[in-house]
Design a protein around this nucleic acid. Structure first.
Lengths: 149, 149
DNA sequence: ATTTATGCAAATCGTTTGCAAACCT
DNA sequence: AGGTTTGCAAACGATTTGCATAAAT
């Protein structure tokens, strides 16, 4: 009853193996959940959507998956950490729309050519101060459609 | 013995007054500290640099200053919130270099023309999904000069 | 059989808050 | 005096961790 492509799980399994970790059913359930949500989820949201998952194991496994490069942690001004699949697993580079009214974080993408220009400009600006860029994070903070009216 | 321009304090006082708040000496000390640090500071860093400031008042006043639009809260992957003066007070739009090794957050600026192109592209991309952008946040995550070697 | 993962409950730690004393105006 | 701010210590809450049991190899 896989909702997600088998290749995703294969790739996850490889990354976990590289980190000497097993791909247990709880971890698989987390990956499934994050794959079908099209936005980063909080631990509370994960627990609502899954049963059989326990809070401490969710925290532990999300950290472990993060360490293995499977999952990425998203932080915003609010008090909850959010988690999404790593971009290089989904092949889907994206940014976030952070609603300062309800806290929800949604994904969105930027035009590829602008993205490229941005990347180049960032890398060169950073190198002048001796900083080596591994990743950029571009979030838009504002008001989402549902909170607009 | 003002280390910072008097106009800054005047502007802060106005914003606080608009929010029915007084500009007390503790709050003034916070503004002074944030003005001379050229990067966002954690509460621990604030307490190291100032004496006469107490932890709970620092937290309380930073929140209050944030509410009045004087101070901006910066969150990163690590466990500490950081604070800086609001950009429209300093007149200095900037971004952050977040070192994933030591956690330090430094300021840096982007070429004005790129910044403008980015702003336009972001606003139009966001509007297609009904999101109203108030602010963008662009952080570079990587390794700072000191952690490089 | 030995190692690793899980679930529960307790601990951790940055941050928030209640309350009484100090400070303005 | 009347209202606000401060300092201290206690409370809070998201996350982490210790430990005993269950699962995997």
């Amino acid at each position: 009853m896989a909702v997600v492509a088998a290749e995703l799980h294969d790739a996850v399994e490889v990354r976990l193996a590289d980190d000497d970790q097993r791909y247990t059913s709880g971890r698989r359930a987390l990956v499934e959940l994050l794959a079908v949500a099209h936005r980063p989820l909080t631990v509370a949201e994960v627990l609502e959507r899954a049963d059989g998952l326990t809070q401490s194991s969710v925290y532990r496994n999300l950290s472990l998956l993060e360490h293995a490069g499977v999952v990425h942690r998203v932080v915003t001004e609010d008090e909850f950490a959010r988690f999404e699949l790593a971009e290089d697993l989904t092949g889907h580079h994206h940014h976030h729309l952070v609603c300062s009214s309800c806290g929800t974080v949604d994904d969105f993408t930027l035009d590829a050519s602008l993205e490229e220009a941005l990347d180049d400009a960032l890398a060169s600006a950073a190198s002048t101060v001796g900083f080596e860029v591994r990743q950029h994070r571009l979030d838009l903070v504002g008001t989402c459609r549902r909170c607009r009216r």
